[in-house]
Design a protein around this nucleic acid. Structure first.
Lengths: 213, 213
DNA sequence: AAATGTTTGTTAATCCATTCACATAGTAGC
DNA sequence: GCTACTATGTGAATGGATTAACAAACATTT
């Protein structure tokens, strides 16, 4: 599994889910073996990059043969720990939060939003897509100790109060849609999805493009 | 404005929206000048990176003084073309699509989702947050020629049909939530937001982290 | 107006990631 | 088993982005 000698670069980490999804699809199609060159055509990542990425997880392939699809599914599955379910809490049940609950990463049975929090009395006590919505002030009371991951979909201004509360109950991985930059504990891994920034930088590139990007 | 001699790196482009948002906030707070060192504390980007980024747009600052907040707001506003409204169409009015319409980038009056498309008869003809939902088969008929930008929030499997249709009506900038990699015209700028991948790579980092990231 | 202090813009150094290119190791056919 | 292919894994080269560090430019104070 994780090759102690080789370090896995950040860029590689961001690609693991793409690899995993692609080899899963191949497996479902009954494909048994895959060459880096062919995989490159499917996911639009250069074959040299694929080979280097794969090799940082050990020697997964065979010269003159390629990679066994089953092996890749296994290995990436282990890397992403898809065997043990990841229970996730969500803070903020506005339109975006509700959409995330309803979606609930349906393709990935190991990813489950199991509870949600809000401060709106109209929402507290209800269920969204079978997921109970609790009062955010009852966070510590309601949360189960298996939950280490949170998704934040609250207005940016509310985020500075949310993060310390989450850290206080043992959350160490946070995905947030609020662009407000925050200070968090060194043990907390945080990732931002900033929809407005994505759109604005996309438009900048489109408007100023000489060459395709 | 755009400094012809200096080229703007992709990494810089992705930061422009963050800079714009920060200097707007400073302006609203009545702040007149800002040093790169101080801005660095606010947005958590190293001051050297900020200075290098800013200098790629011309000499915006003054030695021994810093940057005028008003100048920065002006310049970044011009770069992002916030004076002329960008009309956007949305394809796919499921939970996520509806949430995006209702949000509609409210902080940015220049970004407007003005029409939406779906193939569900139950949705066609309705309005979501004041935005009309049309039949996707009427795309060419309904679209106005001012629209050059689209957001796709359809199931991944439907995306290969959606993209060529959009390109056919002159769309050249696409933001999509469907991770399915696609081939598109060289003149089309496309950006993916892949929620599952973001979450999976976040979890990988959190689980395997020795050092904070 | 001179002296002191501050902060930029940029050159050089470093770091990280991608890509090339090929020796090596294995496959497939005969 | 031997020969001709094929595709990996990786050392070396390249490219892109970040960071350090400082001369030059301006502000401020006296």
């Amino acid at each position: 599994m994780l090759n102690a000698r080789a370090r896995v670069s950040k860029a590689t980490v961001r690609r693991i889910p793409l690899y995993y999804r692609a080899v899963q699809q191949l497996q479902q199609q009954g494909v048994k073996r895959i060459r880096s060159e062919r995989l490159s055509e499917i996911i639009h990542i250069p074959s040299a990059t694929i080979r280097r990425d794969f090799s940082s997880f050990g020697e997964l392939g065979k010269s003159g043969y390629g990679y066994s699809v089953d092996t890749l599914v296994d290995e990436f599955g282990k890397l992403l720990e898809v065997q043990d379910a990841e229970n996730i809490l969500l803070v903020g049940c506005g339109g975006l939060g509700a959409a995330l609950i309803e979606n609930n990463f349906r393709r990935n049975p190991d990813l489950n939003i199991t509870m949600a929090f809000d401060i709106d009395p109209a929402k507290i006590g209800t269920e969204i897509g079978g997921v109970p919505v609790y009062d955010f002030r009852e966070l510590a009371m309601r949360v189960t100790p298996d939950i280490k991951t949170a998704i934040i979909a609250v207005p940016s201004s509310a985020q500075p109060q949310v993060i310390p509360a989450l850290e206080g109950i043992g959350i160490d991985a946070i995905l947030t849609f609020a662009p407000q930059p925050v200070v968090c504990l060194p043990t907390t891994t945080i990732r931002y999805i900033d929809l407005t920034s994505e759109l604005q930088s996309l438009l900048f590139t489109a408007h100023h493009q000489q060459l395709a990007d």
